[in-house]
Simulated scan of single mutants.
Amino acid sequence: MAQEIDSVDAKILDIIQRDAGLSVAEIADRVGLSSSPCWRRIKRMEEAGFIRGRVTILDNFALGLNFEVIASVKLALPNRENLQAFEDMVLAWPEVTEVMTVTGQVDYMIHVVTTDMHAYDNFLRDKLLGSALVSDVQSRIVIRVAKRTTALPLDLVENVK
């Protein structure tokens, strides 16, 4: 059974998932608590696994990482060992920002971020297709991102007291 959170916890989570750079005092002020109880709630939610980490979201375009691809990857033989070997392999590739096991005709969808089409071609040839684990890759070039967020829809959480 999932651990319960109350409405104040949900507000805290919503605030920090949108801006993890806020101080505990700023978060406490926004939810109507003093700093110490707010800090204790945050620590409890970290220990419970609701908060996995805090990161800074970078702008890939400002950094010159202007080429994004969503690739469908089919393994040659999708057995337990090969699935794990593929996942271990892509974890080491910095160009891959997301890896999802999916249902259907392919085994994985991966999000790849790189500088340009030539860099992606090198990644595709040298890494993805260079692996005997992979039998097919279908690449979809991202033209424009209409929405990108890491914020979860906390209003859908059923275990809020």
Rank of each mutant, 00 (worst) to 15 (best):
Glu4Asn: 12
Glu4Asp: 14
Asp6Asn: 14
Asp6Thr: 00
Ser7Val: 06
Ser7His: 12
Ala10Ser: 13
Ala10Glu: 13
Lys11Met: 11
Asp14Tyr: 11
Asp14Pro: 05
Ile16Glu: 04
Gln17Tyr: 10
Ala20Thr: 01
Ser23Thr: 15
Ala25Lys: 01
Ala25His: 04
Glu26Pro: 01
Glu26Trp: 05
Ile27Ser: 10
Arg30Ser: 13
Val31Lys: 00
Val31Trp: 06
Val31Thr: 07
Gly32Asn: 06
Leu33Gln: 00
Cys38His: 00
Trp39Ser: 10
Ile42Glu: 01
Lys43Cys: 08
Lys43Asp: 02
Glu47Leu: 09
Gly49Arg: 07
Phe50Glu: 04
Gly53Trp: 08
Arg54Tyr: 13
Val55Tyr: 12
Thr56Trp: 12
Thr56Ile: 15
Leu58Trp: 12
Asn60Glu: 10
Phe61Tyr: 04
Leu63Ala: 14
Leu65Trp: 14
Asn66Glu: 09
Asn66Thr: 10
Phe67Pro: 07
Glu68Leu: 05
Glu68Lys: 15
Val69Lys: 10
Val69Ser: 01
Ile70Gly: 00
Ile70Pro: 05
Ile70Gln: 03
Ala71Asn: 01
Ser72Gln: 13
Val73Leu: 08
Leu75Gln: 02
Ala76Asp: 12
Pro78Ser: 04
Asn79Gly: 11
Glu81Trp: 10
Asn82Asp: 13
Leu83Glu: 10
Met89Asn: 09
Leu91Tyr: 12
Leu91Cys: 04
Ala92Glu: 15
Ala92Thr: 15
Ala92Tyr: 10
Trp93Lys: 09
Trp93Gln: 03
Val96Ile: 15
Thr97Val: 13
Val99His: 01
Val99Pro: 03
Val102Trp: 03
Gly104His: 03
Gln105Gly: 12
Val106Tyr: 14
Asp107Asn: 14
Tyr108Cys: 06
Met109Pro: 02
Ile110Pro: 02
His111Phe: 07
Val112Asp: 02
Val112Pro: 05
Thr114Met: 02
Asp116Gln: 11
Met117Phe: 09
Met117Thr: 07
Met117Gln: 13
His118Asp: 15
Ala119Thr: 11
Tyr120Lys: 01
Asp121His: 08
Phe123Thr: 07
Lys127Asp: 03
Leu129Phe: 02
Leu129Ala: 00
Ser131Gln: 02
Ala132Pro: 00
Leu133Trp: 07
Ser135Phe: 03
Gln138Gly: 07
Gln138Leu: 10
Ser139Val: 02
Val142Lys: 00
Val142Gln: 02
Ile143Thr: 13
Ile143Ser: 11
Arg144Gln: 13
Arg144Trp: 14
Lys147Trp: 06
Thr150Asp: 02
Ala151Glu: 15
Pro153Glu: 00
Leu154Trp: 13
Asp155Phe: 01
Leu156Met: 09
Val157Ala: 05
Val160Trp: 11
